[in-house]
Amino acid sequence: MTEARSYHGQPVIKQPVWTWEIPTYFFTGGLGGASAGLAYLAQWRGNDVLARRAWSGALAGVAVSPMLLTSDLGKPLRFVNMLRMFKVTSPMSVGSWLLTATGAATGVAAADAWTGRLPRSGAVARPAAALLGLPLSTYTAALIANTAVPVWHEARSMLPFVFASGAALSAGAAAVALTPPDHAAPARRLALGGAAAEVVLEQLMEKRLGDLAAPYEEGTSHTLSRLAQACLLAGSAMVAWGAGRSRRASAAGGAVMAAGALSARWSVFKAGFASAADPGQVVGPQRAAIERGERRGAARGHARVSAPDPARGSPATSVY
């Protein structure tokens, strides 16, 4: 690819204006959503000790999330405008409704799991929270993929799977950290499986992005990605070999793995900023597709009329 031409090296698209709350929410939303599923299934299998802790993790995740999102708004007091309408073309709109519904269901389910006082509403809320938690964990990837940012948009088929792995990893890691080792075997399997999937899928995504993966190969995003890998490796080792017996190893391993999941979300978030700031990332692939004849582009050099019509020309046509 030849070096793309640009206007004084200025970006073509705008960098997101989102601040630290958003990548943190990617983590807490996935944690909340997948924890609800883990809790529901653990309860189903009769592991109430694990289920109660997982419901707590789910509640923590979905309770912190709206606060993070509201705090990121330019007009926080207008957060309720998110529920003015339901728009399928806006993953943020869909996600706002998902988070609201999952939050309500998780609140009821967690209250019932700990107190046992809401058996009837709990019976409805538990499967609802578990089911809604699944898309809650992946829609955030759809949200950022549905932008003009090349490193996100061109990874649109992979990003939701990367986020799903991260959600499984987060839910598993939190439950490992909170649950007595004897009851935490499913959580350990979830954390280890999620971590493996996260690392593999992220590598695959970068490979598929080709030249567009540049933001992951240098700078902040690269550092965060490396940090995530280190955390996942160290945390997985602790969980795999120590957490079955030691409560301390469980707590430490789970915490380190959760930190890895958080760092991985930050890496993806930061990659979007670098991608948007680089006019070459935006213009290069567009120009290449035009030159290959795959796309016609938005410019046309031939006029659809042959004879100039002076009466209809620009007022300044006499210049030529």
Partner: peptide, 24 residues
Amino acid sequence: DLGSVWAAAGAAAAALGAGLLAAV
């Protein structure tokens, strides 16, 4: 590309469900 974006998000949500089932 929103169709493919939603399709991927849905498939990933289903995969997450399958992963949870397998883990538990």
